[in-house]
Amino acid sequence: MQAHPQLILLSPVPLTTAGTVLGIGIGGFIDGIILHQILQMHEMLSNKIPATDYIGKSINMFWDGIFHAFCLIVTIIGIILLWQVSKRSNADHSGRLLTAGLFLGWGIFNLVEGIIDHQILQLHNVIEYAHNHQPANYLFLGISVVMILFGYMIIRSHHRSHHWPQV
Results as ranks from 00 to 15, higher is better:
1 M>Y: 09
2 Q>G: 13
3 A>I: 14
6 Q>T: 12
9 L>W: 05
9 L>C: 08
13 V>A: 11
13 V>Y: 08
14 P>A: 01
14 P>K: 00
15 L>I: 01
16 T>M: 09
16 T>H: 00
20 T>H: 06
20 T>C: 02
21 V>P: 06
24 I>V: 14
24 I>A: 01
25 G>I: 10
25 G>F: 14
28 G>E: 13
28 G>Q: 13
29 F>C: 07
33 I>L: 15
35 L>V: 15
36 H>F: 13
38 I>A: 14
39 L>H: 10
44 M>G: 07
45 L>F: 09
45 L>N: 02
47 N>F: 15
48 K>Y: 06
50 P>A: 05
52 T>A: 05
52 T>D: 14
55 I>K: 14
55 I>W: 12
58 S>P: 07
60 N>V: 05
65 G>R: 15
70 F>E: 07
72 L>M: 13
79 I>D: 06
80 I>G: 08
80 I>N: 10
80 I>A: 09
84 Q>M: 10
88 R>N: 13
88 R>I: 06
92 D>G: 01
96 R>F: 13
97 L>N: 10
99 T>P: 03
99 T>E: 10
100 A>V: 00
101 G>D: 02
102 L>P: 11
103 F>M: 08
104 L>S: 00
105 G>T: 04
109 F>I: 06
112 V>E: 04
115 I>K: 02
117 D>M: 13
117 D>W: 08
117 D>N: 12
119 Q>S: 04
122 Q>H: 08
122 Q>L: 06
123 L>W: 03
125 N>Y: 13
128 E>H: 01
129 Y>G: 01
131 H>A: 14
134 Q>F: 07
134 Q>S: 12
136 A>P: 03
136 A>K: 06
138 Y>C: 07
142 G>N: 04
143 I>K: 08
145 V>F: 07
146 V>K: 01
146 V>L: 09
147 M>L: 11
149 L>H: 07
150 F>K: 03
152 Y>N: 11
154 I>S: 00
155 I>C: 09
157 S>A: 04
157 S>L: 01
157 S>W: 06
158 H>C: 00
158 H>N: 01
159 H>G: 03
166 Q>S: 12
166 Q>P: 05
166 Q>D: 13
167 V>I: 15
167 V>D: 14
